[in-house]
């Protein structure tokens, strides 16, 4: 180890020490100061009751399975519909103008309307037309509402990816004798999809939480279960339980997104 390396190692140790000290000081300040607030014991009883936490946790985890199920079957549907909408908007042939208009209207409407309204409208409205059971299930139509909304966002992200592929590549493909659709399929999309992976990971994380909105039309998922416990026990701890369960899933997902983004940035630079 030469002198420079020794110096840098010392600097590194020193900065780790400072970071650790300041973190500990901040945590200590929170842990000591917050409980000194006059209302702390009541807040603790209402939001962080260990007794309520343990009592509600098993049923909450059970309810979370509903979220996971809706999430699991929505995601592939969103990918398909989103891609279809993005392709519709990226067509160039004059004959397909109506398709482009339809794609634009779809994206504008479903990005502009609150998710909750879409869920109510489709979740209550479509079954209200007189569908028999089980085809009027809130699970089906709630999923349709989520898929429509999220596809609109994903379509715009994908279109951004498609536009980011330089037009010269398309020109090169065509001059090699590929058809328009082959150019899209073999040259543009593989690059476009790869470029927008981090942005789409963000949508996945948002979807994980928005799945809970389906509870408005009946399904008892984790947030609704928390609301039931809140009312029956007059205690907000079940919401904290829900937050912990959500964090256990979203934090690893977020970290993974960061990792993907960093890798992509490294690859570009």
């Amino acid at each position: 180890m030469n002198r420079r390396e020794k110096y840098e190692a010392r600097q590194r140790r020193w900065s780790i020490l400072i970071a650790a000290a300041s973190t500990i000081a901040t945590l200590a300040a929170i842990v000591i100061l917050v409980p000194m607030a006059p209302g702390w014991s009541r807040v603790q009883q209402s939001f962080f009751s260990g007794e309520v936490f343990l009592k509600t946790l098993p049923k909450m985890l059970e309810a979370f399975l509903v979220d996971i199920a809706i999430f699991a079957w929505s995601t592939p549907l969103i990918a398909i519909v989103g891609l279809a909408a993005a392709l519709a908007r990226s067509t160039r042939s004059p004959g397909l103008f109506p398709l482009r208009v339809f794609g634009t209207i779809f994206v504008d409407v479903f990005r502009g309307v609150p998710v909750v309204l879409v869920i109510y409208l489709i979740g209550f409205g479509v079954p209200g037309l007189g569908l028999p059971r089980p085809w009027n299930s809130p699970y089906i139509w709630g999923t349709v509402a989520l898929v429509l909304t999220y596809s609109a966002y994903v379509a715009e992200i994908l279109r951004g990816g498609i536009d980011s592929v330089h037009p010269s590549q398309r020109a090169a493909g065509i001059s090699l004798g590929l058809s328009e659709s082959d150019v899209m399929r073999y040259i543009v999309l593989p690059q476009a999809v790869r470029r927008v992976v981090p942005a789409n990971m963000n949508m996945l994380i948002a979807l994980q939480k928005d799945v809970a909105l389906l509870s408005f039309i009946g399904p008892v998922e984790i947030l609704r279960q928390a609301g039931v416990y809140k009312s029956l026990l007059a205690n907000f701890t079940p919401y904290v339980v829900a937050a912990v369960v959500f964090l256990a899933v979203t934090v690893p997902a977020t970290r993974y997104t960061d990792y993907l983004m960093n890798r992509q940035n490294d690859a570009r630079s």
């Binding site: 209550f124 409205g125 079954p127 209200g128 007189g130 569908l131 028999p132 059971r133 009027n136 299930s137 809130p138 408005f216 039309i217 009946g218």
Partner: peptide
Amino acid sequence: YDDNANVTEAMKSGQ
């Protein structure tokens, strides 16, 4: 459901 209106709406739509 959240309130009475939503429950009756779900009844109307046969859910």
